[in-house]
Amino acid sequence: MDDTSRQIRFTLNGRPVTARVESHLDLVDLLRRFDLFGARESCGQGLCGCCTVLVDGVAVSGCLTLAQLVDGRSVTTVESLDEGGALSPVQQAFIDEGAFQCGFCTPGFVMMTHELLKENPDPDEAAIRDYLAGNLCRCAAYPEIIRAVQTAATRMKTAQAA
């Protein structure tokens, strides 16, 4: 097998990093090398959302992203949300509404909810369902997830107004 690896530089949760990366490596496996396990491969087909991360501020499925292609870009994972020690309003709302059971899909839902509320700070239930339709929860905490998104939206609006 030829050596198809290459040195890449990118920004990871705000910090510049470098890595030697094989051409076939995907972004989830690259993040594992940085001990970041919040994005995780489950279905391996971009359908469950467990591997959601942001690349240049846009949500992508890490399992469908070639690691070499994040060269020069900015990658943000769920671990960035509480870097200051405090939970994000979305994370807190997920806890308060009990919006998970096993927790394996939760980082993906949390990341997608942040993206939804960035685009649409006041989503109705239909908009929540449409936006989160690409994330699967086998424990089926969907009713609680919808409530968590609504709670987070309300709190974020209130905080904004204050």
């Binding site: 594992r32 970041l36 396990f37 919040g38 994005a39 995780r40 994972t77 769920v78 671990e79 949300l81 509480d82 939970l87 994370q91 807190q92 997920f94 806890i95 998970f100 927790g103 394996f104 939760t106 980082p107 949390v110």
Partner: peptide, 16 residues
């Protein structure tokens, strides 16, 4: 009890 670990993506799974 493990809520915080789960929403932050830091819960331990054998997967990791």
């Amino acid at each position: 009890l493990e809520a915080r670990e789960k929403v932050t993506g830091r819960a331990d799974y054998v997967h990791n």
